[in-house]
């Protein structure tokens, strides 16, 4: 669907995107991750024809036409990281405006925009002025707008920034929904765990380069085995912390990562049975254990590791 080859973007002597090559197959929900300044937005803007690349080629849907031409623009629905809306324009007029920019006729637009507003759950806001909508609603409206011309590729740049947890969940559901309908979607974020729950594949970018890319499951497995210190287990202890720490320090393959007032975090290179045995031994000793959980495949630490430990 999207083939990026050797893409480079220089700002003067600074290289924002450095020989990036990436292939995203049709029907994928691709997560594009990287710390601030990694070059995600730059890459996306080049693909959308908003920025001229310094080198490299981009192929969308098998077409090798130049970026920024109508043919290419029609294949992309773009939701920017920051965007504004017009004052004094109603939601349905907003949809109408962008529909007519793709030379759709008003009947087509009316029908499609009804469906899309339904999809993004804004049907009851049709008569509202766009600038009175909340941030999350605007974000969803923008998604509906980007889908209006039925693009083959939907690109969202940090759709979750500035949204509250509830709105994030709604956005996630919406994207999952679109994915199940067969749309190819690219979503950028600098929070890996946010993407891990919905994406089918991810690419991690740092300093203008693609650090790793591939199927979500493959990458998750890699993390499970790979991360130094093994699986991270949080243990809540209300009494007998010292004894517990002593015990853990003597245990083979266990690394004590941190000790807080009533929480102990350990890294343990072990199978699930071994972990279960360890917990069992803790409970049998005089430690008062009130809870424990295993950190979900530690994406953040992988992320930190891969991106050179800079703040993500």
């Amino acid at each position: 669907m999207l083939k990026i080859n050797d893409l480079t973007k220089n700002y003067g002597s600074f290289t924002a995107v450095n020989h990036l090559s990436l292939h995203i197959p049709e029907g994928e929900l691709f997560g594009f991750v990287g710390p601030n300044g990694a070059g995600k937005t730059t890459t996306i803007r080049i693909v959308c024809g908003l920025l001229k690349a310094s080198g490299g080629t981009v192929e969308i849907g098998g077409s090798k036409a130049a970026l920024g031409t109508k043919e290419m623009k029609r294949m992309i629905g773009y939701v920017p990281d920051f965007f504004g809306v017009y004052d004094n324009l109603k939601v349905k007029e907003y949809m109408d405006l962008y529909g007519s920019m793709y030379s759709m006729n008003s009947k087509e637009i009316a029908k499609l925009s009804d469906d899309l507003l339904e999809l993004v759950n804004l049907t009851d806001k049709k008569e509202f002025y766009v600038d009175t909508l909340s941030r999350g609603m605007k974000q969803r409206l923008c998604v509906a707008r980007a889908l209006l011309h039925n693009p083959r590729l939907l690109i969202l740049d940090e759709p979750n920034s500035g949204l509250d947890p509830r709105a994030r969940v709604e956005m996630k559901e919406l994207l999952k929904n679109l994915h199940s309908m067969g749309k190819t979607i690219i979503i950028s974020s600098h929070i890996l765990s946010e993407l891990s729950e919905m994406c089918s594949s991810i690419g991690i970018m740092d300093h203008g380069k693609l650090v790793t890319a591939g199927n979500m499951d493959t990458i998750m497995q890699g993390i499970m085995g790979d991360v130094s210190g093994g699986k991270k287990i949080h243990i809540r202890i209300s009494a007998g912390m010292e004894a517990a720490v002593r015990m853990m320090k003597e245990y083979p393959n266990v690394v004590v990562e941190s000790v807080r007032e009533n929480e102990l975090i350990i890294g343990y290179q072990a199978t699930d049975e071994e972990i279960s045995a360890l917990i069992g031994r803790l409970i049998q000793s005089q430690v008062v254990l009130t809870g424990f959980y295993q950190e979900e495949g530690n994406l953040e630490s992988l992320f930190m590791q891969l991106t050179g430990g800079e703040e993500a």
């Binding site: 623009k73 029609r74 773009y78 965007f83 504004g84 809306v85 920019m101 793709y102 707008r145």
Partner: peptide, 13 residues
């Protein structure tokens, strides 16, 4: 108003 980018990505020349 940050509406121009989106306008440029539409089919408008």
């Amino acid at each position: 108003r940050q509406t121009f980018d989106v306008m440029l990505t539409t089919a408008m020349s």
